[in-house]
Nucleic acid binder design. Structure first.
Lengths: 163, 163
DNA sequence: GGCGATTCGATGACATGTCAACAAAGACGC
DNA sequence: GCGTCTTTGTTGACATGTCATCGAATCGCC
């Protein structure tokens, strides 16, 4: 039973800033995305990940893993996006259980229309406010944290969005 | 119609790292919080903000503003927390429309039991992985971004979680 | 090849968050 | 004081996310 080590002043400052920034940045980016392109952030992420593949198609589970989403969440979300015509499902040739998610023409149009504005917003409200050294540091420590967290997940039964 | 300025390599690295870190960190912190203390992150935040006030009581709208939540969201969430006995609502003496949110005994117990473990997790999975200089930089640029975003919100009709 | 264990994706029930509308009460100008 | 405009918090309908479960298909091992 140790005495709790609370955060010192700098840590507290950093932690509060981080959480507040996240919230405000999310609100602003989501707002612009809906207004300008009629997409939510999750929509954008799905389309963006799909469009980064050569064919605009990915196995559902592969996409879920990349996004760190549960298959269930992705399946539900795809159903909704499918109804809007942004993506389609195809059967998987080599695994009859599988589903392949495909970017439709409309989906590609949507992401191509949305991307420039979104990137501009990310710059305007975030990246451009950082010095090059800060951007460099951000890239360095976030990936360090990601690697650390991936450690605790990959080994053993594999916890995760999957539960 | 300008040509889009995409992110250069460092910016892309930083932006992807940031988003991936957020997601993994959220999953891990939320997981530990539920397992160890039976609280969700939103629960924790409500209790935490309340417990930082001298009396453990706040006007609903004041709490919503601090948390950057809509009043609606907070009201719904309080109803649920109230049913679990973590908070209570009181009438506001000087404004009959108002509601005052009060930390109950059980709520205080819950946050006091949860806090040490949560802080430890924040250190372990995040802050302790950063150099002091990185923590310093994080505090600096996040608050810079927060100030910038607060600018775009405060003036004029006041956009926000409020819609 | 066959059988048990695992993986895949879908689904329904439920928890949570958003949005628009509302009633009640304050604020303000007159 | 009075009418109007605004603020406050709640509510219900709906969108989104989570969790447990399921049937179907595959894998692994014999």
């Amino acid at each position: 039973m140790e005495a709790t080590r609370w955060l010192d002043e700098r840590q507290d400052h950093a932690w509060r800033g981080y959480r507040r920034m996240r919230r405000l940045l999310d609100l602003e980016l989501a707002r612009e995305l809906t207004e300008d392109a009629g997409l939510s952030e999750p929509d954008y992420d799905v389309l963006s990940d799909l469009s980064e593949t050569p064919q605009g198609r990915l196995r559902l589970s592969e996409l879920a893993d990349r996004m760190l989403w549960s298959r269930s969440r992705l399946s539900h979300h795809l159903t909704r996006m499918q109804q809007r015509g942004l993506v389609a499902r195809e059967e998987c040739p080599d695994d009859a259980r599988g589903a392949i998610v495909v970017l439709t023409r409309a989906g590609r149009n949507a992401i191509e229309a949305a991307a420039p504005g979104h990137v501009a917003a990310v710059r305007q409200h975030f990246l451009d406010l950082l010095t090059p050294a800060e951007v460099e540091a951000l890239g360095a420590f976030t990936h360090r944290v990601v690697d650390h967290l991936a450690q605790s997940r990959a080994p053993r039964p594999r916890r995760g969005p999957e539960a």
